[in-house]
Simulated assay, not measured.
Amino acid sequence: SSRYPSIRRVLDEHPTLLTFYDFPSAIWRSLYSTNLIESFNKQLKKYVKRKEQFPNEASIERFLVSRFDAYNQKFSTRCHLGFAQAQHQLEEMFQRQG
């Protein structure tokens, strides 16, 4: 606290900031990284930027919903990095809470 007061202040103001450390270390990177979200958002922005291909806002919304659905279908059967390895630990954690 005395050595890094600004860091201590941030942690005091945001006590949930480092909660990913409560989970198994195999999934820490997946929890604190936003790379997947940022990549998907970048793809969406690239398509929506060319607005002339959409006659109105409703067509943009339909397009976005179709992209979200395709993304969910693509990743619905995949296990994210480290989650298969930590599955047993996660099940135990959530059984204790429930």
Rank of each mutant, 00 (worst) to 15 (best):
A26G: 05
W28D: 02
Q43V: 13
L31Q: 03
S66C: 13
E57W: 10
N72H: 12
R50A: 15
L31I: 06
F75Q: 06
R78V: 12
R78E: 15
A70Y: 07
S33E: 03
I37P: 00
N56Y: 12
L36M: 05
S66Q: 11
F63H: 07
K51V: 11
Y47S: 12
T34V: 11
E52W: 11
N56S: 04
S76P: 04
S33F: 03
Y32C: 10
Q43I: 12
L36W: 02
R29D: 08
K45R: 15
S59P: 03
F75G: 03
Q73D: 14
R67K: 15
R67H: 09
I37H: 03
V48I: 15
L44E: 10
C79W: 13
F63M: 01
S76A: 13
V65C: 07
S59Y: 10
F75C: 08
E61A: 11
D69I: 13
P24Y: 09
L64D: 01
V65W: 06
W28G: 04
R29F: 10
D69K: 11
T77Q: 14
L64F: 09
Y71K: 07
E52A: 12
L31T: 01
I37G: 04
S59W: 09
L64V: 15
R78T: 14
F40W: 14
K45V: 10
A26M: 09
L31K: 04
D69Y: 11
R62P: 00
S59I: 09
R29V: 07
K45E: 05
F54E: 03
E57C: 05
F63C: 02
V65D: 03
E52I: 10
F54L: 08
L36E: 08
Y32I: 07
